[in-house]
Amino acid sequence: MPLDDLDPYRGAHGGPRHHELSGPAVLDESDRKRWARAWAGTADVLHLGGEHRVAEAVALLRCLVPLADPPRPGPDARETGSCSGTRREAFGALLSSRPPTPATFATTLVHELQHTKLSALGDLLVLHQAGPQQRHFAPWRPDPRPYDGLLQGVYSHLALADFFQRCALRAERPAHREAAWSRHARYRAQVAAALPGLVDSPDLTERGRRFVDQLVATHERMAQYPAPRGHTARAQAHVTAVRDLWNRRHGPAAGHPRG
């Protein structure tokens, strides 16, 4: 797969998801070696989250556009965060800053490939007729989301919940298992809080209704292998706190009761 740091049109400006991305990077030889180290071992981590994760990465990825390390807000300006994105008009292209570990990169692939798949499906089928009004609560964002953004977020976070549940069930080291359960519980609780905004919409088409019903069914099936109670309680408390803060700032979200 090409590591594309040359194409003059590889930037990601102009889309609503792209204002948080850093600019494209031009790599030297040492940068390429660091990317190779980040790439090494990623497939093994993806395998832990299900064989289908590796298969879809092989099938869907066409090129990787390296991004500069974005600055991380904080007192130490030398610290950097990470960012990633996809473009609807460039199917199979992944834009990403260099991840610190293969596990981080595997998570990025799971997340971004969901956006790639749903964007392609949205080009083929009309799933909803909702407008661009930003009024929906999403626990992973501080700002109200449009319906299409909520659908994209639920789809990607549901995949992350599934990924980390599978990692937790397969992990051999207790520390890795507990970390995976914590991530799973957080993502599953977030999806549970956001699903009503999708389900209650009158703007879903027939195909969109079937799609959302499958999201609900997938979320419910995860209850067969629940996270330990402590992780679940902390995840629910976090989502409740985020919702309360959101309600104070924006008022009750569409499809969500206050509190």
Rank of each mutant, 00 (worst) to 15 (best):
P132R: 09
P196N: 07
L204K: 03
E89N: 09
R10W: 07
G255E: 02
V239R: 09
R234Y: 00
W35Q: 01
M1W: 03
D213S: 10
A227F: 10
L61K: 00
L150T: 09
L48D: 13
A180W: 13
S82L: 12
V45S: 01
Q190P: 02
L127H: 06
L21K: 05
Q152P: 08
Q134V: 09
R72N: 05
R34P: 09
R98E: 03
L60N: 00
C63Y: 01
R141W: 05
D123A: 04
G149F: 09
G85C: 12
E220Q: 15
G23A: 12
T104D: 15
P66G: 02
D123V: 00
G122Q: 14
R87M: 11
T218E: 15
D213R: 10
F137E: 00
H219R: 09
A77Q: 13
T42W: 03
R72Q: 09
D5I: 08
R248C: 11
E178M: 04
G11M: 10
C63N: 03
D44P: 02
V212D: 00
R141N: 03
A237Y: 05
A194I: 07
V242S: 10
H128K: 06
P8E: 04
M222F: 05
Y155C: 14
A106K: 01
S96R: 04
A138L: 14
L46H: 03
D143F: 12
V191G: 01
H184T: 01
A189R: 04
K33T: 15
R145P: 07
Q165D: 11
Q224D: 13
F163E: 00
A90V: 13
R221E: 06
E220R: 15
L118Y: 03
D76M: 09
H136Y: 12
L169R: 12
G81L: 07
W181P: 08
A36Q: 15
G74C: 07
R72K: 11
R173P: 05
L151W: 04
L127R: 05
H256D: 10
A168M: 03
Q134H: 11
F105C: 08
C63A: 14
V191N: 06
S156H: 12
E89L: 09
H47W: 08
F163N: 00
R186I: 04
T232G: 02
S97Y: 02
G41K: 06
T101P: 02
G92L: 09
P257W: 10
S201T: 03
A193D: 09
P73Q: 04
D69C: 01
A77P: 13
R209K: 02
D7V: 08
R210K: 13
L48M: 14
H19T: 14
D76E: 12
Q114W: 14
D148V: 14
P70E: 12
Y147K: 01
H13S: 12
G230R: 13
P100D: 14
P144K: 06
R98A: 03
F105V: 09
S156I: 11
P132A: 10
Y9G: 13
G15D: 15
E20L: 15
P174A: 08
D123N: 05
S84P: 08
R141M: 02
V216T: 09
L151R: 00
L124T: 10
V126A: 15
A253W: 01
D5Y: 02
E112I: 06
